[in-house]
Design a protein around this nucleic acid. Structure first.
Length: 465
RNA sequence: GGCCCGUUCGUCUAUCGGUUAGGACACCAGGUUUUCAACCUGGGAAGAGGGGUUCGACUCCCCUACGGGCUGCCA
């Protein structure tokens, strides 16, 4: 079997869409899992709508998601001469022809056809015209598509899809200004880049038939098609701005680990038995086109959050810490100071299994990020009533000479609680408020151990004063 | 209008002619608990509708409904 080559080919008209990200992920997983190559091509032939900023945003999105591509990024626009060359080759082979119809003529035809309920398929009168009758005006080059028979797509996801050739018209390959159309450019590029598997949104399923005709016209091998269903919003409708987070950058801004998004996106529309939570290595080894579903899937924020929490918990500290710092930077938040980094690093063990996102984790890490005097938030301030402050006062005294180990601390705190006639739950609350200024934190004993004797006692004293 | 694709619990999905239709997220109840998170136990929850084919259909075929895509000298 020849090596697999896949590609992701977005048009640079905005940020990287979550659906596009999944398409890229599937291509990446398939190539990487089979020792193949994953290429990136920017479909920027529409000069009106393509911007360098959008291209940069897409590359940035892919990079954040951790999808590395092979070789240089291909600009479709820069390959326009080659596209034109192929169009002329088809002309020379007799598989294409010059059409001198004007756009106004064609538009008028379509309008009339629609009005009369006839087929709007345009059949150019120039298809079999004698070159000696050619007028001296601009022309487009159209594919001389077969008018009888069928064009068959053997799709790895959709199965066998048959199109009657009389339903397909002679598409324009080269515009009257000499620039290539998308339909031509895709085929030429995929061929020249050696793409073996075209994995893309199923909005291209119909296009695959037309593109197949071009491959045939040039005598080129047709790649394996895999048209994957589009992603829908939580309401089942086509994804759009009003669905909240649509851009990949919005997910990174919300503090989801890229690994979690990869896992979630891979599982959306693809399955490997009952496996839900998996690593990149597993995804790569498991990913097959046959595992892709045929129905559009809806985004589910709750499930993403669940997976996100599992991934954060599973990450080792050495990879988690830089991820959090990258998140901070991307969120334009102040960077960690060296003491904060050291503190956070020491506390990760008791933070990572209780957070669903990075901001969630950071909020629970407040005790190690804040400096004295710790400002309690509203809920914590409420906990620190006079009675609680009194208890904290005696606790401070009792902890004075305790050996700073978990067991000793637990014993000491339990003793104070018993003395006050309280359960551990009751006394933990004010301690939490005093040490963290928050009501949701790691275990109070973990905090004491991380903070150390001096800092702990100082904070307790601050709060009881 | 024409062509094409799709339709299993609320959601993501398993099933590839024979299962009490399984799992996960979410939800509800209970447990554990030091808040949060996590965890444990239990529960409710699905084959769009109608025809076929077959001894037997979620699974194969047809129709309908609904959803989506394409129908550009956009990509």
């Amino acid at each position: 079997m020849s090596p697999i080559v896949t590609r992701f080919a977005p048009s640079p008209t905005g940020y990287l869409h979550i659906g596009g990200a999944r398409t890229a992920l599937f291509n990446w997983l398939f190539a990487r899992g089979h020792g193949g190559t994953f290429l990136l091509r920017i479909e920027d032939t529409d000069r009106e709508r393509s911007t360098p900023e959008a291209t940069a945003a897409i590359l940035q999105g892919l990079t954040w998601l951790g999808l590395d591509w092979d070789g240089e990024v291909v600009s479709q626009f820069e390959r326009r001469d080659r596209h034109a060359e192929v169009a002329h080759e088809m002309l020379a082979r007799g598989n294409a022809y010059k059409c001198f119809c004007t756009q106004d003529e064609i538009e008028a035809f379509r309008e009339a056809a629609r009005a009369e309920g006839r087929s709007t398929l345009f059949q150019s009168p120039w298809r079999d015209a004698d070159p000696s009758t050619y007028p001296d005006r601009p022309f487009v080059i159209r594919l001389k598509a077969p008018r009888t028979g069928e064009t068959v797509i053997e799709d790895a996801v959709q199965g066998r899809v048959v199109f009657r050739n009389d339903q397909l018209d002679d598409m324009v390959c080269l515009r009257s200004d000499g620039t290539p159309t998308y339909m031509l450019a895709v085929v030429v590029d995929d061929h020249d880049m050696g793409v073996t598997h075209v994995i893309r949104g199923d909005d291209h399923l119909n296009n695959a038939a037309r593109q197949t005709q071009i491959f045939h016209a040039m005598g080129w091998p047709v790649p394996v098609w895999a048209h994957i269903p589009l992603i829908h919003g939580e309401d089942g409708k086509k994804l759009s701005k009003r669905h909240g987070a649509v851009g990949l950058h919005e997910y990174s801004a919300m503090g989801y680990p890229a690994a979690a998004l990869r896992n979630y996106l891979a599982r959306l529309g693809w399955s490997h038995g009952d496996d839900e939570f998996f690593t990149d290595a597993q995804a790569k080894s498991w990913f097959e086109l046959s595992g892709i579903g045929r129905a559009p899937a809806r985004l589910d924020a709750k499930k993403l959050a669940n997976l996100s929490g599992l991934h954060i918990a599973a990450m080792d500290d050495a990879t988690l810490l830089p991820e959090i710092e990258a998140y901070l930077q991307a969120a334009a938040a102040p960077a960690l100071t060296p003491p904060q980094r050291a503190g956070l690093s020491a506390a990760l063990y008791c933070l990572k299994d209780r957070a669903k996102t990075y901001p969630d984790l950071l909020e629970k890490a407040h005790f190690v990020l804040a400096q004295r005097p710790v400002q309690p938030d509203e809920a914590a301030a409420k906990v620190l009533d006079p009675v609680s402050r009194g208890i904290l006062g005696t606790l401070t005294l009792q902890l004075q000479n305790v050996s700073w180990e978990r067991e000793a601390l637990e014993t000491a705190v339990a003793a104070v609680a018993a003395e006050a006639g309280l359960g551990l739950g009751k006394i933990a609350s004010p301690i939490r408020a005093a040490l963290a200024g928050r009501t949701a934190t790691p275990s109070v004993f973990d905090m004491m151990l991380i903070l150390g004797r001096d800092e702990t006692l100082a904070r307790l004293k601050d709060a009881s004063a």
